[in-house]
Amino acid sequence: MAALELDALGRIEVLDEVGSTNDELMARARAGAPHGAALRARSQSSGKGRRAHLWSSPAGGLYMSVLVVPEVPDRLLPGLPVACGLGVVQTLYHLGCKSARLKWPNDIVVDEGKLGGILVEVSRSSGRTVAVCGFGINFRTPHVEHPTDGSLPVVGLMRCLPSGAMLPEIDELAELLREGVLLSVEEWTDRALAAGSNAVPLTGIIDNYHQFLAYIEEPVDVFSPEGSDYDIRESGVLRGVDGWGRARVETEPGKIEYFDASQVSIRLHKGDESR
């Protein structure tokens, strides 16, 4: 999408409350909404996380979804969430949040803790593939009454900005994030199509992903979700991801195991949670 087209996008619609911005925007996509359409809500009653988990969305956060109509073969679509995530964290980085990183596969973290999360959902409608990139970012640090054991502390955007930096107005931040997501997707699309039949999902963006990947080259635990509990499956050193987005964990010297984000999660190794 060229800069002129970005300028031509309509304003981001703001809803006082919605069940889920992803669900609402996907319904609009099926009704013909265009690439780049976006909406945000002041609060969500049924915010969505990975594996159908509910996402707490009290008033005061930025809860937003951007519609993407990908122009790549279906086999490359697993790279779309990474392209969208890079658009979000790079925007935050350029705003001054220099510690913004992507915790594999979909959390936005900073040195102080968890800043937000990203959920990309893909569907087919009227013969076209459509996707919504939804993200929730703590504009200011919320109060968490019952934190989950082992979870990172929840922080707001101001906590990760340099001293004296001005927090952008939430409407301005939303526009910057939409632009960041769309430009990142465009860059990924161009590089993947240029590679032709040799392209894999992360073609052209894997190096950038590694620059913004949290815990790379650090000890981690790999968890297998079972109900509401998490059991450690393996421990090792995170060596990055492969071209399909699978986590590469060195579980023994010279032994790399590959993990799919649909089956596991990763945290810093026990004893390092405060980092």
Rank of each mutant, 00 (worst) to 15 (best):
R42W: 13
L77A: 07
D74L: 14
D74C: 01
G49C: 12
Y63C: 09
C84F: 07
M64Y: 02
P78M: 07
G49S: 12
R40G: 13
C84N: 05
R42L: 15
W55K: 11
S43K: 15
Q44I: 14
L80A: 03
A59Q: 13
V88G: 02
L77D: 09
P70G: 06
W55F: 15
S45P: 12
L92V: 08
A59I: 08
H35K: 08
A52R: 13
K98C: 03
L54T: 13
S45N: 11
G49F: 12
A41F: 14
A52V: 07
A83M: 12
L86K: 03
E71Y: 00
L62R: 01
S57K: 07
Y63N: 06
P58D: 06
A41I: 15
V88C: 03
G79L: 06
G61S: 06
G61Y: 05
V66P: 00
V72K: 02
A52G: 06
G60C: 04
L95P: 00
S65T: 04
R40P: 12
Q44N: 12
P81E: 10
G60E: 06
V82I: 15
G36Q: 05
C97K: 00
L76F: 08
G61W: 04
G79Y: 03
P70F: 09
G36A: 10
V66Q: 01
P70I: 09
K98L: 15
Y63R: 05
L95M: 09
A52K: 10
R75W: 05
V88M: 04
V72F: 05
Q90S: 07
H94T: 00
A83R: 09
L54N: 07
G79P: 07
